[in-house]
Each structure stands twice: as structure tokens, then as C-alpha cells.
Design a protein around this nucleic acid. Structure first.
Lengths: 241, 241
DNA sequence: CGATGCATTGAGAGGACTCAATGCAGGTGG
DNA sequence: CCACCTGCATTGAGTCCTCTCAATGCATCG
């Protein structure tokens, strides 16, 4: 891929934005330098701890954010406490939903997360003025819809073993989107309980399936979180592909 | 609700479009009479039988459609034949995905379906010229994403009984969106096997759960397809809300 | 050195699946 | 007009996978 990214008018680009992924692959790519500058005056960066509530069911819909780094989990909960994680978001995803109140989806930081937040009003005005921005949002929303539907197949039709393998595969590909080799190493961005809530299983079942994959030498685990996949193809087979 | 819909310039509106739901609640609502007229010259209506493939994995991405009536199921299949229905679409939903090849989702008619189809090129040009059209698409995509995530909770965390109740509730609300009373009667738009594929169950389990709901007098069934729900609240309880 | 917070492992129970038989309606042809 | 077929749907019996509940392991931290 092109290692040197072309970026005209670097001098006009706000400092904060220059190294930001959202500038290149995210929604901010739709903005001119001038608009970016204007927006950046109202934007604020912050770093939050795991489990921090970023979007609550009723909480602040007053701002939108770009994810700079880290993983955000979107989850739904039933009245009796049963929980389901319905999506994971990575940098440089856009967080928050224009034109609607979140219908019972809440967002929490899974890992430590850096975000760049803007006031709701500023974004919504820009959307109205910039069709290109709305186009970017449509693109991301379509991608999320695809991912949600992929996951529905996993939730509805795969066995526990296939689910866990699918999860590892998902993280592996998102952690290193451009990975060329077959071997990948990474840290799991979430606990066993979170993984269970993402897969529609119990954490005991997740643990047993991870142990089985380890014993079959499909994965290696140290310290509960650090995972090595020596051969992505073998993991892929376990995921039902 | 307003029984008499206001519709200016009826005289300019193409005949085919005048009674069409898409004109009011669907994407065509974004078009001017002139654009509608132009589009209608290239559009064609057709009625298809249940199980007709409307969008195949590789098949014709050459046209987009509005659903005039009937129910369309979106499904994904694994290599070994396991199947999952990942969404249902009703009138006046827009069928087909701009800017991308369908990633392994196919669409089949669940019931008899009437569609109004347009050439791919015409729509994509209009999208580029009409931000309002893209906005409508974003709206629909966001709605589909919400529905997909709701269903992920159902697939991942609900029991068989709750799943079947949730399905009946979904159909009941979509069949009569503006229903005021507690009682609803309708025909199921799909077979037991389809319902099972939507719920991530086997058709035997679906059948047993329907029988249980019938014996508990939560629903009434005649002729396998025709269902009456005397009290939506009681069904809602069964669905886990 | 306990305490605390995950994760793993084990034993038993239960819910959904599998496989198979039966039921039921509509259509067809003798 | 009835017999048969065909295509769903229902029902039954037994199995298995995942859950539940409980104990144990293993780090980190005060």
C-alpha cells in the first residue's frame, strides 16, 4: 500500500488532526481544511478508562465522537440483566447516531479509549451543508449493517467452538487489517465475560472452547489476554468457513 | 391519522406512482415530480412468486427496487447449508445496496411480492445529484441497523419460547403499524422452516413453542398460517420485555 | 500473606436438536 | 368420488451440547 500518504495543505490542517486516522479513513476525510479548522475549534480529545460509558441509553446525545484508538463495545440489556454486545467499534469509526435517539444501545469503552468529540449541533449543521459527509456516514452505516448481519449468522447458526473461533478471527483481522503473513499476535480487547456477551454464550463455555483451541494448538495464550495465532487458515476452518 | 393524504401536483405525478407507498414513506418521497417522471420512464413493475430470488450473491446488481407489497427475506448461508435469515423487508422498503456488492446476502420473496425496479445507473446518478435521496437511504439503513441489533439480542440471549413470541410480535407490529387495539389477526408470511432460520432454531422447536403458546391461549392458529393474538401485552410478556 | 478479581475446571441438569413417526390439507388421477 | 401422493406441520423419544452451580487456580495489590 502507499506508505507515504498524500495530504495537500498540511499547513492548513489543524495540528490535532494531522496524524488522525479519521482524517484519512474516517468521516473527517469529507471535510475541507477550512471546515476541519472550524470544527477543531469546538472539538475536544479525551482518554477514558475501560468500562466508561460513552453513550448511555438516555445520557448525553449532546456530542458525537471519532474513535482515535481503542475498542468500543455497543451493547443491549434486557430487563432481567441478560446482556448482548451487538457491535464492536475500532478507530477511526464514528460514534453516535445523527437524526435519532439511540434505541436502547449503549456504548462503553472495552479498552482504554481515546476519542475526539464534537458538539451535536456543529456536526448536524455540517451534515446538512456537506453531502459528502453524509455519504461517509452512509458508507460506515452500511459497513456496520454488513457486520451486524454477519454476526447474526454467527449467533444464530454456529456452535460454541465456531463462535469463539469467529471472534478470534474478527479481532485478528481488525487488529491488523493489512496483515500479510499467516501468523498474528495481539491482546484480546475484552474479558471472558464480554466475549461471552458478544457470542451469546456463558463465560465458562468461552473458557472451555479457548482451552480446547489451545490444546489443539490452534492458538497460544499467555496471561489470559495475550494471544498468538500461528496459522490463520486453521483458525478459519474452526470458525465454519 | 390523516386519512386524506395531501399530495400537491398530483397531476404531475406519474400514474404508477400516485398510489405507491414509496412515494410517501419510501425513498421516492425525496424526488420532485419531474424526477419521479423521469425515473418512472425506466422503471418496471412486476409480481413474483414466493421463493423467487430477488438479489442473488452474484446475480443482477443491475437494478434496485422498491417493495410495493409483500415480504422479502434476506438470508445468509454457510458452506454446509446452515442458513440464517438476517432481515425481513416490507413495503415500502428499498431493496438493493448502492456503492457495494452484496456481501453474501441474498434476497428472496417470502410471500408473493410486488416490486418496482429501476436501472442501477439511473438511481446512482440521482443519488449523486440529490442529497435528499441519500439522506432517505441513510435513514432506512439506520433503521435496518437498529432492527438488526435488536434481533442480535433475540438470537444471542433469548430462549426458544421468547424467540417465537418475539417473532410473532415483530410480524404483528409490521403488519399493522398503527394498530390501536390489543387484538391483532394476520397471516404468517413464511413457513415454519423460514421462521426457524430467522430465529436460529429448528422448525420442530418452533412448532413446539407455537403449540405451547396456543395451549396457553396466548395465540390462536387456524390453517397453520392464520394467527390471532387476543392480547398483545401477554405476548409481549412472553417475548422477554 | 490473605484479599480480590478474573479465569479455569468439574459435575450435573436441562433445553434444544436429531431422527423418526404421525397428522393434515390440497391436488391429481383413476 | 375416493385413493393416493405430496408438502408442510405436529408430536414423540432419546441424545447431546450448553448452562448452572460450585470449587479451584492464578495473578495482582494492599
Amino acid at each position: 500500500m502507499d506508505i507515504q500518504r498524500k495530504d495537500v495543505h498540511n499547513s492548513d490542517t489543524p495540528l490535532l488532526c494531522q496524524a488522525c486516522e479519521s482524517r484519512h479513513r474516517g468521516v473527517c476525510g469529507a471535510l475541507t481544511s477550512e471546515q476541519l479548522l472550524q470544527l477543531s475549534k469546538h472539538s475536544s480529545r479525551r482518554t477514558v478508562e475501560p468500562e466508561t460509558e460513552l453513550v448511555g441509553e438516555s445520557l448525553q446525545t449532546k456530542s458525537y465522537s471519532n474513535i482515535i484508538s481503542g475498542v468500543v463495545k455497543l451493547s443491549k440489556m434486557m430487563a432481567d440483566g441478560r446482556q448482548q454486545i451487538v457491535g464492536l467499534q475500532f478507530a477511526p469509526d464514528f460514534l453516535g447516531r445523527p437524526f435519532r435517539q439511540e434505541n436502547g444501545v449503549s456504548a462503553q469503552a472495552a479498552t482504554e479509549v481515546k476519542v475526539c468529540s464534537f458538539p451535536k449541533a456543529a456536526i448536524e449543521r455540517m451534515i446538512r451543508e456537506m453531502p459528502e459527509l453524509e455519504h461517509k456516514l452512509l458508507e460506515q452505516t452500511l459497513t456496520e449493517l454488513d457486520e451486524a448481519r454477519d454476526w447474526m449468522l454467527t449467533l444464530g447458526r454456529k456452535t460454541a467452538g465456531e463462535k469463539v473461533a469467529s471472534f478470534l478471527l474478527l479481532i485478528a483481522t481488525h487488529a491488523f487489517p493489512d496483515n500479510e503473513s499467516d501468523t498474528v499476535t495481539f491482546d484480546l480487547p475484552m474479558s471472558r465475560t464480554d466475549i461471552a456477551d458478544f457470542l451469546g454464550l456463558t463465560m465458562e463455555t468461552v473458557s472451555r472452547q479457548l482451552t480446547k483451541l489451545r490444546k489443539d494448538d490452534v492458538i497460544r495464550i499467555v496471561n489470559n489476554r495475550h494471544v498468538t495465532i500461528p496459522d490463520l487458515t486453521r483458525l478459519s476452518d474452526r470458525a465454519g468457513f
